[in-house]
Simulated assay, not measured.
Amino acid sequence: MQVTDWSDFQAFLAVARTGQLARAGRMMGMDATTIARRLRRLEGQMGATLFEQTREGQILTLAGEKLLAVVEQMAMASSELESANSPSGPTGSVRISVSEGFGSWVVARHLGGFAARYPGLTVDLVASSGFLSPSRREADIAVLLSRPKTGPLIARKLSNYALRLYASPTYLAGRKPILAPTDLRQGHQLIGYVPELIYAPELNYLGDIDASLAATLRSTSILAQHSMLISHAGVGVLPCFIGDADPLLVRVLPAHVITRSFWLVTHKDTHGLQRIRATIDWLSEIVKLDARLFAGV
């Protein structure tokens, strides 16, 4: 049966992406009751139940999954047509999932310039411990710590980046000098991640310095670890784009450098969209602008 009201499809898409009526309502700027009414109308026109109600929210039925594939293509076509006709360039929204440190210390600093360049875009910067998945359409673009091995994805290396040990001069003053990794084993407080809560093996930094080292002040947040370091609490590993950018910290064991990589990942179905391409190009630009910090030179 033909459905003529595009707003019903938009409500369906918002619920499919967020998993909850209330979240979908906030995304679309309306209340959950209106979203629910539009869903009921769409289900009546389609002659099928599109979502199952659970304690956590709405889960797509088989009919809903089939409709989602069609509606996503419609939404992409609509966005591309709108962008093509916009004098200000790409329009619509882009959700970027990045690690907490990279998002807060690098991406966020440049977002103002990106917004000025593309005023028609709305940007969601999800900078947290853990990543949203482009393959499940949770994010349009993800900057991951390793190249994904499966899924309908396109991935390329965004940049290598260096990490080093850091501490504050106040912490180091009066303590045993750190001339080798073995000096960290006694008389020093080590800061790092909570081992069982590390969401990616690439975050096991201390083991790259010395396999016997273990943090005693631990957090799942790299920003919290940074706060401990500048508060003179101990010694810890930070990406150089954080540690070298902060004048309150100095390098410890400067000859020891850890190298990791960022991978730029998109869904193959959306990779070529104008708004996605523009954002990918911009992310590559800002990494080049901060190349010396990334390399830790």
Rank of each mutant, 00 (worst) to 15 (best):
I191K: 02
K288Q: 15
P195N: 07
G174K: 02
L13S: 07
Q189R: 12
A14L: 03
E285K: 06
V126E: 12
A215H: 09
I154W: 00
A75Q: 11
A173Y: 02
M28A: 11
F294E: 04
D208W: 01
S221H: 03
T61Y: 06
Q73D: 15
P134R: 00
P90M: 10
R275G: 08
L229K: 01
T33G: 09
I178H: 04
R260T: 12
E56C: 01
L67F: 08
T122C: 03
V287W: 01
P169T: 13
Y118K: 10
L273P: 01
E56F: 05
A295N: 12
R17D: 15
A77P: 00
V287M: 02
K288F: 03
R251C: 12
G187H: 07
A255R: 08
D210S: 07
D5C: 02
T182V: 14
D31V: 13
D290I: 06
A115S: 13
L121A: 07
H256G: 00
G89R: 02
L253N: 08
D183L: 10
Q186P: 00
P90W: 05
V15S: 07
I276F: 10
L81N: 09
A255D: 15
V237R: 01
G243P: 09
T49F: 00
V287K: 00
D246W: 01
A11M: 07
T150E: 13
T4G: 01
R147S: 14
A116F: 01
A16W: 00
A16F: 03
G187R: 07
T216H: 02
R95A: 12
Q189I: 15
L121E: 08
L67P: 10
Y166D: 08
Q225C: 11
R260E: 14
S78P: 00
G64H: 02
I230K: 04
S221T: 09
E82I: 10
L111E: 11
S168F: 06
V70H: 04
Y193Q: 05
A278T: 12
R275T: 12
A24N: 06
L50I: 10
R277T: 15
I59A: 02
L197M: 08
W282L: 13
R137P: 00
D246C: 09
G112Y: 08
L217C: 03
R55Q: 13
G103L: 06
D31G: 06
G57Y: 01
A84Q: 13
A224W: 03
A11G: 04
Y118A: 06
E100Q: 14
R275C: 08
S78G: 11
A214N: 11
A278D: 07
L153M: 04
K268M: 10
G243F: 05
L121K: 02
W105G: 07
V257A: 03
G92M: 10
W282G: 13
A22K: 12
Q45R: 14
L60F: 01
T270N: 04
V71K: 03
L39A: 03
S261L: 02
D290K: 04
A108S: 15
A215L: 10
N204G: 09
T266R: 07
V257T: 15
T182G: 10
V123L: 15
A36N: 12
V265R: 00
A200F: 01
Y171W: 04
R55L: 13
I276E: 10
M228C: 11
R41V: 14
I154T: 12
P148F: 05
H232L: 09
G243C: 08
V257E: 09
